[in-house]
Design a protein around this nucleic acid. Sequence first.
DNA 1: CGTCTGCTTGATGAGGCTCAAGATCAGTGG
DNA 2: CCACTGATCTTGAGCCTCATCAAGCAGACG
Lengths: 200, 200
Amino acid sequence: MEISAVPPSPLADQVRHHASGARIHEAGSAGSAWRVVSGAVRLDAIDGDAVFAGLAVPGDVLGAESLLLGHCHFRATALLPTVLTPWPGAAPAQGTFLLGALARAEQRTARVVALRAGQAVDRVKRLIQLLVPEAGGGALVQVMLPPLRDMADITALTCETVSRSLSLMRRQGTLAAAGQRRGRGTKICRYRLPATDAAA
Amino acid sequence: MEISAVPPSPLADQVRHHASGARIHEAGSAGSAWRVVSGAVRLDAIDGDAVFAGLAVPGDVLGAESLLLGHCHFRATALLPTVLTPWPGAAPAQGTFLLGALARAEQRTARVVALRAGQAVDRVKRLIQLLVPEAGGGALVQVMLPPLRDMADITALTCETVSRSLSLMRRQGTLAAAGQRRGRGTKICRYRLPATDAAA
DNA sequence: CGTCTGCTTGATGAGGCTCAAGATCAGTGG
DNA sequence: CCACTGATCTTGAGCCTCATCAAGCAGACG
């Protein structure tokens, strides 16, 4: 529980890198807690087979329960090339620090839950916006997309429907390939953010 | 799976009661944090109109962000007759205490997200099981149901579909009315828990 | 007693799931 | 350098579930 004093900005030797698709920790294993610096992580409840249970994006905390119980509840898998830093790293893990993580977790829940309502194309767009590092109105930003299988699990759609949604977005000019083509590895795309008034 | 099964019962003068449908706090207002003792609470993000953002059941913490920021992010509404107690109470809001709340929040996310995948009847069943205070295999338990409108928002279905799902469950003997009839007020029903092996 | 709110049920159509085939690409070994 | 394999993605056809629209009913409440 008690806290080692570590500077707030993760130094180069205090981070861990994971490739897209890499397992970060297994459910039930003795893991430790991390904060996501960049990338995205998928959490799964292991109930016979894996069931999508949550998402962590930069700033979020991973495996906080292991500090309390000594083991992780969820399987964590990198959706994109992901950088983690030990948590709690900075300052005292008390008061404001933990409260901030709690507040952030609630907001993450709200956005993840919202990824599973509405029309297919809108869900996929919302997911992409969650993965866009920066945020601005109407801008054309670069974004990495996880495999279709993961996008489907997160949005509660099928691979086919996600693929069709992305195709539609390309036809409409909302999305454009910008890096690798198809096949293994994370896709890099350009995505046009909707106007700030956020219609739907 | 669950962190602590039964939350400690607070003294009678340290609780607040809310009727079904009552507003607990408004988004953006200066609220305070509460722990749910019994009942259930719905959280909504206010984005023009209210969008379902989360659920709190006994043991969960409500409005933790107000301790940090001074105001609430979400609107909180009682889904059932609900009892709350101030949080953190006498205990210090540090260490294990906050970590427990964080771990619990992650587990709640997993279950709420699961309420929005799969067939309609299964979603409704899962929601009812989330509202059942006690848990046992194959038993016939008493449970209060929130208004259809809320069940629909939570499961990302429509009122009509939820109503049809409940009708089907009644025809199949999974659910039976046990208190008030239709009209205003929370419905009381008997619900047959599925066998512990939990076949989806 | 009339109105209002919440619940139920039916008819119909659309959106997404299922099944299936083909395309593209990374890695491997000849 | 190229064929082969396996994984991922794309696209099509048909069906099914659920959303939508609509009507009717039961209690609550003034």
